[in-house]
Design a protein around this nucleic acid. Sequence first.
DNA 1: GATATATATCACCATCCGGTGACACTAAGT
DNA 2: ACTTAGTGTCACCGGATGGTGATATATATC
Lengths: 200, 200
Amino acid sequence: MHRNAEQTRQKILAGLESLITRDGFTGVGVNAVAREAGVDKVLIYRYFGSMEGLLRTFADWKDICPRIADLYEGIPEKAPLHEIATRIVIEHAQALQNSPLAQELVCWALTEENPLTVLFGKEMEHRELKALADKGLIPDEDVVMLSVIVLCGLQYLILRGRNNNPMMGYDYSKTEIREKLERVVSSMMKAFFQGREGGR
Amino acid sequence: MHRNAEQTRQKILAGLESLITRDGFTGVGVNAVAREAGVDKVLIYRYFGSMEGLLRTFADWKDICPRIADLYEGIPEKAPLHEIATRIVIEHAQALQNSPLAQELVCWALTEENPLTVLFGKEMEHRELKALADKGLIPDEDVVMLSVIVLCGLQYLILRGRNNNPMMGYDYSKTEIREKLERVVSSMMKAFFQGREGGR
DNA sequence: GATATATATCACCATCCGGTGACACTAAGT
DNA sequence: ACTTAGTGTCACCGGATGGTGATATATATC
């Protein structure tokens, strides 16, 4: 048995992550985390004070949201605004689709308030805002609102698709449906921008 | 103590409802329901077989989703299509905003699969489809998709607003923000419809 | 090598959970 | 009045939970 506090802390954090990923947030608790991490639960109290403290640390520990900067590398700076807005929203949704952990955290944030969900919510907000600002979409509040609404809608569909309980049959995990949804979003954005100032 | 099986069943169902409404779905269990209903938990097993059975019955018991027919009475049959689509989506969102129970059930449906969440999901789907079909919007799949996306987005914002954790500050419960969101949805729908066949 | 401190293990507590069996009461049928 | 079926109460089980105190062991310091 190695005596290494830092390593133990990491094991606990990793245990929390895999527990959430595998069993969902509803099963999270001191005993379950300790079991998953292969560690005595008393160490959670020693190193993190409480479950709350562990969640707080966990929120800072890992980049839970996908790295937005990487996501948007492929978007040409000079593309029409409606295309940029569309891409941002869709890339965001794809990132969520590819991260079961993030899905569970989004769901948790919709369900209850705790240090992790609050920090996670703020983080998502920050990244989303940054993405929109970087691309020059921020000055127009209507565009921001619309992007947020659509992004949230896609996130909702992704979450509903998980439990064999898709909304209106729109299961985002099915490629064909995903592409249809993306097409609709794209043409809607285009129409919206054209209806105002004709874009850039 | 009155000996009335039917009345006891009602007390249990009502207990489940108030329990979900007050404490959220995470606290639902045989003990908690029995306590809330002021009834011995063995009666839950006797009358409903199991927790699953109770949830199944509960789903049929009450009109959980808002009555769509009533909601759309105010929409003129001959209004432009984009206006109809907008109204349907917004009325739906308002109904959710006014029903803490429905909010909790939506959240539950996003989290896990059980008889109640599945039936609830199907019921929402059915009502939404019916609303769109009644107003003649069904033939156009793009319109249906867009409506669903936007509706889901608003539902997401409503859920996030509950726990002092609003997405991007868009707290749907604040009148001023709600009106802004509605305006954006409205003008987006208009632009989208105009971009196609010029509406009705 | 002896001591002190950080680290890990174990045993235990009260409480809650889902679930069941035994019993008491009440009302109706005969 | 006596049985019978329906209804409600109670006590209990094994197991899981959050939380804590006492103890063992490894590492560092002198």
